[in-house]
């Protein structure tokens, strides 16, 4: 696999009047050509700063960013601007020109590279076709819904045939259904045009939905990275676990008791494992979390079980699950 973006030891320190904020503390990451890479972290983790370093909207304090081997830091203003036409970006709040209609918004990046008006309009119309908004060409952004605005932003981003598309919390302002359709569109673009996509998000579900590669950022450091499957099945660090278990904060009663997390692979979800286990061991368990997601085309389920205090019964159950080829992992303090 070729590398599209190489991030080497990138740090970024913001110096305020009387304080220093280390937003990025030496991040190194390779993003493969044609992949969809998710960069995930809690808000304030530094992920937005990181993505802005990828097109030098934010200049790293130290370290290098290479796009197809070219160092952004070594470029002059004109070279950097030319390179930026290859690195498109979409935003949480869409950032469309409010005084231009949809078609002219898509024409804007074409004007920047000096395309003729007529050609630009033709290309913009094609792009609106791709994102399914042809009939809104003459509308103004204020007349569109959030999802439609993001579609316009995507059309605009594709205008100059970029190699990379950076998405900064692109679905965070959208409802779940619209989020799904935008993610589907991004996936389609990735497959159809081979554009490398970098997605910044705080939602694990977004990563699970379309990413192949994931990097977890916590307090300015890269704590975990790899294939989505790997990180989702076996999150090693606290930050990663927190994100994988996202949305499950209501379970406080099981503190101090023994909990395990099991991950179902491939076909194992067809067998009623838990029910069989309870029948065989004759001890009830508490299911604290269960969900199934489609990750990279295969069904992946995860479940967090709370075992009874009786350790012999618990051991037996763990053995039972391991025998069924499930990934079983003890959770020391699940609630946090």
């Amino acid at each position: 696999m070729e590398t599209m973006i190489q991030i080497k030891e990138v740090t970024k320190t913001f110096i305020g009047r009387d304080n220093k904020v280390e937003a990025l503390k030496g991040i190194s990451l390779d993003i493969e050509k044609g992949s969809i890479c998710g960069i995930i972290g809690m808000s304030g983790a530094g992920k937005s700063t990181l993505v802005r370093c990828l097109n030098y909207l934010e200049k790293p304090t130290s370290g290098t960013v290479l796009i197809e081997g070219r160092d952004l830091g070594g470029m002059n203003d004109a070279q950097l601007r030319r390179t930026r036409t290859e690195i498109a970006m979409i935003f949480q709040h869409f950032n469309l020109l409010m005084q231009r209609n949809v078609l002219d918004n898509v024409c804007f990046p074409l004007e920047i590279v000096g395309k003729k008006r007529k050609e630009a309009k033709k290309r913009a119309a094609e792009l609106l076709e791709i994102v399914g908004l042809s009939e809104k060409a003459k509308a103004y952004p204020s007349q569109l819904s959030g999802g439609q605005k993001q579609r316009v932003a995507i059309a605009r981003a594709l205008a100059n045939n970029p190699k990379i598309l950076l998405c900064d919390e692109a679905t965070s302002a959208l409802d779940p259904t619209t989020t799904k359709s935008i993610l589907a569109l991004l996936k389609e673009i990735n497959q159809k045009f081979g554009i490398t996509i970098v997605i910044i998000t705080h939602e694990m579900s977004v990563v699970q939905e379309i990413c192949s590669q994931v990097a977890i950022i916590d307090e300015g450091s890269l704590v975990e990275s790899g294939s989505v499957e790997e990180v989702f099945s076996r999150p090693k660090t606290k930050a990663a676990q927190k994100l994988v278990f996202q949305g499950e904060r209501s379970v406080s009663l099981m503190h101090g008791k023994r909990c395990v997390r099991i991950v179902f692979q491939d076909n194992s979800s067809f067998e009623p494992v838990i029910a069989n286990m309870v029948l065989e061991c004759r001890t009830p368990v508490n299911i604290l979390l269960a969900d199934t997601k489609d990750i990279g085309g295969t069904a992946r389920g995860q479940m967090v079980l709370q075992f009874p205090e009786d350790s012999a019964a618990a051991e037996k159950m763990i053995r039972y699950l391991k025998d069924r080829n499930l990934t079983v992992e003890e959770l020391a303090d699940y609630v946090e």
């Binding site: 601007r81 930026r84 935003f91 950032n95 020109l97 804007f108 004007e111």
Partner: peptide, 22 residues
């Protein structure tokens, strides 16, 4: 909106373009 200016920068727009068109 600062975001719109940022978007223009991300597209490779120069200072003149941003002043006039944004």
């Amino acid at each position: 909106d600062k975001g719109v200016i940022e978007a223009a920068q991300s597209m490779g727009a120069g200072l003149g373009t941003i002043i006039v068109k944004v």
